[in-house]
Design a protein around this nucleic acid. Structure first.
Lengths: 100, 100
DNA sequence: TATTCAATTCGAATAAAGTCGAACTATCGT
DNA sequence: ACGATAGTTCGACTTTATTCGAATTGAATA
């Protein structure tokens, strides 16, 4: 009984086009900004004005591109921006996207 | 008799998500890299292994997002990366995407 | 073990992008 | 004016994304 098995790329596998694509959507970019500001957060706190299933889809895109990592903590799925991995692989990108 | 009227956004109108989207495609990113390396270039020189109409489509995306500007010179359409505009609007982004 | 809560997966519908040939437009050279 | 060249636009098709309700999973709690 696996706890939760997202398919997140390792640092070395991060692909620039996939990352840019993930960030090219307002809803997802909003999530990323909020994670950058407030740190680790569960999916539920994001005000995205869409049903859960849509939100979930966007989290999947963020995970599969490697922008976000997710771990379970009790009944919540906690999401974190993969700052270090992104900075290592694409220096300056996240900073530029977040605009300071 | 207009010479050529592309719909390019002004610097202040550049939208981050549109720019990221434009850059999230391998073919377009390839064009951008080549423009960054070699400077202004006509559409024809790009080796993109697709028919002209497809190439043209990608140029349109690059223009409409504001990544590239195009002017006619004789029978060629010369393309330039909008480095200054992009740097002004999204400092560090282009550098990060181009990897130095 | 039954309920509840958090969030995902499924599936089907809609929307948006990409692809490519063919036709078109503009410019240049003859 | 004709032909060649550079690239675009059009239109139809295929592919990929997004959307959202309903069903499902996993974990906590009673």
């Amino acid at each position: 009984m696996p706890v939760f098995l997202p398919k997140e790329p390792k640092r070395k596998e991060l692909a620039l086009t996939a990352v840019l694509y993930a960030l090219s959507d307002e809803a997802r970019l909003g999530i990323v900004r909020q994670l950058a500001e407030r740190g680790e957060q569960p999916c539920g706190v994001f005000e995205v004005d869409r049903p859960k299933s849509s939100l979930s889809h966007h989290f999947r895109v963020l995970r599969e591109s490697g922008v976000v990592t997710t771990r379970r903590e009790g009944k919540l799925l906690m999401n974190t921006l993969r700052q270090e991995d992104l900075d290592a692989r694409f220096p300056g990108l996240l900073t530029a996207v977040l605009g300071e």
